[in-house]
Design a protein around this nucleic acid. Sequence first.
DNA 1: TGAATATACTTTGTATGCAAATTAATTTTG
DNA 2: CAAAATTAATTTGCATACAAAGTATATTCA
Lengths: 142, 142
Amino acid sequence: MEYPQLKLDNQICHRLYMASNRIIRDYREPLIKLDLTYPQYIVMMALWEKDGITIAELLEKTSIDGGAMTQILKKMTDKSLLSIVKDEDDKRRKVIKLEPHGDELRHQAASIPDKIKCSFSQMTDQEAQQLIELLDKVNQES
Amino acid sequence: MEYPQLKLDNQICHRLYMASNRIIRDYREPLIKLDLTYPQYIVMMALWEKDGITIAELLEKTSIDGGAMTQILKKMTDKSLLSIVKDEDDKRRKVIKLEPHGDELRHQAASIPDKIKCSFSQMTDQEAQQLIELLDKVNQES
DNA sequence: TGAATATACTTTGTATGCAAATTAATTTTG
DNA sequence: CAAAATTAATTTGCATACAAAGTATATTCA
């Protein structure tokens, strides 16, 4: 082959792309019951960890695109999961607050991580830990 | 914390999601010069490896969504990268053929993998190999 | 052989991801 | 202090990812 570096099988990136798409697809079924998409679920996890943060903090924690976040938060507001409050100290900012429905959803969500584990069933716990560490290196700013 | 399994930091999936998005974003700059998006680049790599395959084979090789593939191939046809030919043996099928422009693009693409390596600069070659193997396990059907 | 299935692909509608432009408010500077 | 620069969000336009429905062609099977 003229350019072996162009073989799909040699691309880490293509594997990342497939793996990410696959896992998000696997989340669909458990999340549909909570009426959440995967990015919305990420937002919920961030808020369950720390409620009342600004949109900027939410973007930082989730790595979701800013333009997308506006739309996502709008939809989540429509579903009474959260509310968007203007920050009186700095009127550029908006603070996100969990609504009761959003707060309680965590109990139903608690079983999701276990359901997803079958996506990693080919992997030992040690390998999963290794994968986490390697992905952290990819995610490091360089 | 009430449900530690819901912590974002504990999610392999979130790391995969971030890593995949990041790498695709890194590809944007080199690919924009070839007037290709990342999925379009994947299609090109598949065709550079084996020209004249059906759409079904292309879907299999690339893991791109079928519905998206129709649109992607349409755009690539408009850019004279390839042509879509009806298979006379089985009229349900369509065969994808590289056009001269698409074929020649491989020479310009040959330098891209090296440019992307900086995305993995925190990682040794051995770690990259390890990552590939772990991702292959995630991508295995279970 | 004709109806039921299955296969290959397309279409549609919703939800992002991303870059770039825009708006509003705050901070920095000259 | 006022203009310039910066920051926080939103908006816009394009390109997927995905599920589900639809279309056309082939195959299977009663």
